[in-house]
Design a binder for these strands. Structure first.
Lengths: 346, 346
DNA sequence: CTGTTAGCGCGTTCAG
DNA sequence: CTGAACGCGCTAACAG
């Protein structure tokens, strides 16, 4: 491996000149620059990342706290892909730190080893130790999601309120007045899982504001439970003509129960999946209309948000929210005016 | 940030003693070790990763070439998660290098900067430039998947032959003699996409060996095309009583077409999805029986395979193949003896 | 068992 | 516009 000294010797200049030519931190005459570049090419020179980091005290690496998420759908993958891509474009690399929520201390200790200049924290909860630990240690970070008090904390997140408003307006515009909402499990809501809490709050609030009837239910992430909850909803209020679901697996149960009851989608009942992964809508028949998470956009933004703190020259990025994207399917239609309970067909 | 020199001073020993206490490369008296540990604790010392890497010439980082895979299902996520986890257990970190297949040179150049000690290459094709480039540059690597000639190349992969044999034996044992196989697209087969090529070859060979009738079809990754191909298969050979699919999205089309024809699953036709992601079976009704990819296992193995080359003391890991895991659902039953074409029901 | 010290490859003052 | 030289924090001989 050729070093900077080899290049300097070959080009007949000093090492510092080569260094400056590399970083552009100082004006270099064109001729000198040429000679240096030729020398670099001929020697197959590649600057050593470790030496550079040691001397400059910046690793040019950002860490992604990568939670163990068992999910269908690939939003997480999109996020990671986009984040890695954006990091590379910005001259950084992305390392994966597979820490669980409870391993905040381990995370901080790793960060103190100087391997990463900053940290991206996924799946942040309303009350999240990790963020406190990072702040106490003065480690630059950006969170995906939000803690309860987000005022001065760098974050990017899905705009649940806008997403829910989009969903409700869409359905209400088609005459739906009794709309069910199927959330994640009560357990996750109680654990302060941001999406579950925020979306539910927004749903109830927006429905009330419009004088519509909201039927919200927590539901475990599974088709079987989704089906049970759907049955329960239809029984307890037969006027329901639309389902908004924020639970990919449960949505398959919604379809199953509707089909079992011979309720046609979308003629009798409309279904809209929100905060899903792109593509999952096409797995259902008729194709589920969805509002999918902007995983890629979030990934890029999260990186930008973090880098804006590492490099004071960059524009600081304000806390940013992105709404989910409507992916029209075939599962939404105008509301029926007759209660579905009367419509059993065989 | 405290340095090793601070620790040495505080403990009243030399820096090398601290260094050796840290690495355990040299015997240290218990008493000295105690003093050092106390000093480290009091100073909140954390060794600097960059300095360590520079001096030792090993970064303790491995890179994962992370392809842009647009897929439903989370096998990729499981792989990455498991790999990152295993790397951490082994004292390594995993960095993501989002390079496309065509960016072999860029990948090599990054590797030459010494940021990573070795490289994991996902989604390897039968003819893959990247592997040639890595070998030419003498960069340690392990591939997930296999090139055409795999003899001496470190790799881990799905055991497509064993998976296919498992699938066929299962179905043949239930009396199925005319079995359809739905593959990925012709385009991917032509591109030398390993899974598509290997599984198809294994399927035809094993079916022939058993005197069974194989109906293999390439199929784009989409429910719509999957449905068309299914219709075509049922029309061209009504004796088909079972589908083996290696195409998650197309499988939803298989279900749709069977339901449209009022063919009951599994009474009239059995369906088995192979090389799927865990959980996708539950998205279908009746629950699809699957043989899912061992993503986690592959991730761990890939890391072990690479690390065994970096550390000569480790046992070398032979090229290893892992079969997919049967996840029983409700979509497989005994074969009918009457051609399905005669069974239209309404 | 412990200490001394020369690098690892590069960034960045400071002097010219 | 260019060079010389020190230091980043640690590892690993070499010397005891």
């Amino acid at each position: 491996m050729a070093t900077i000294a080899d290049v300097a010797r070959k080009a007949g200049v000093s090492v510092s000149t080569v260094s400056y030519a590399l970083s552009g931190t100082r004006p270099i005459s064109d001729e000198t620059r040429q000679r240096i570049q030729v020398a670099m090419r001929e020697l197959g020179y590649h600057p050593n990342a470790m030496a550079r980091s040691l001397a400059s005290r910046r690793s040019n690496v950002i860490a992604l706290i990568y939670p163990e998420v068992a999910t269908v759908g690939n939003t997480g993958g999109e996020f990671v892909q986009a984040a890695a891509q954006r990091a590379r474009e910005s001259g950084y690399q992305l390392v994966l730190w597979p820490f669980r929520d409870s391993e905040g201390k381990e995370m901080r200790n790793l960060a103190r080893q100087g391997m990463a200049d900053g940290v991206l924290v996924m799946e942040v909860c309303l009350d999240d130790d990790r963020i406190d630990i990072l702040e106490a240690a003065k480690i630059p970070y950006a969170m995906i999601g939000r803690t309860r008090d987000v005022s001065a904390r760098p974050s990017v997140d899905i705009d649940f309120e806008a997403t829910v408003i989009g969903a409700i307006d869409h359905l209400a515009g088609l005459g739906h007045r009794h709309i069910a909402f199927i959330n994640h499990s009560q357990e996750r809501i109680d654990a302060g899982y941001g999406p579950a809490v925020r979306a539910a709050a927004a749903f109830d609030e927006q429905m009330a504001k419009r004088g519509l009837t909201a039927l919200s239910r927590a539901c475990e992430d599974s088709p079987v439970v989704g089906r049970k909850v759907t049955a329960d909803l239809l029984t307890s209020d037969p006027r329901v003509t639309a389902f908004v679901t924020m639970n990919e697996l449960a949505t398959f149960g919604v379809y199953a129960e509707l089909q079992a009851r011979r309720l046609a989608i979308p003629d009798d009942v409309s279904v809209l999946g929100i905060v899903t992964s792109p593509g999952v809508g096409t797995l259902s028949y008729p194709v589920l209309s969805t509002m999918h998470s902007p995983g890629g956009e979030l990934g890029r933004l999260a990186v930008d948000c973090l880098l804006s703190q590492l490099d004071p020259a960059r524009q600081p990025i304000p806390n940013q929210l992105i709404a989910c994207v409507l992916e029209p399917g075939m599962s939404i239609g105008p509301a029926r005016t007759i209660a579905n309970v009367d419509l059993g067909r065989s």
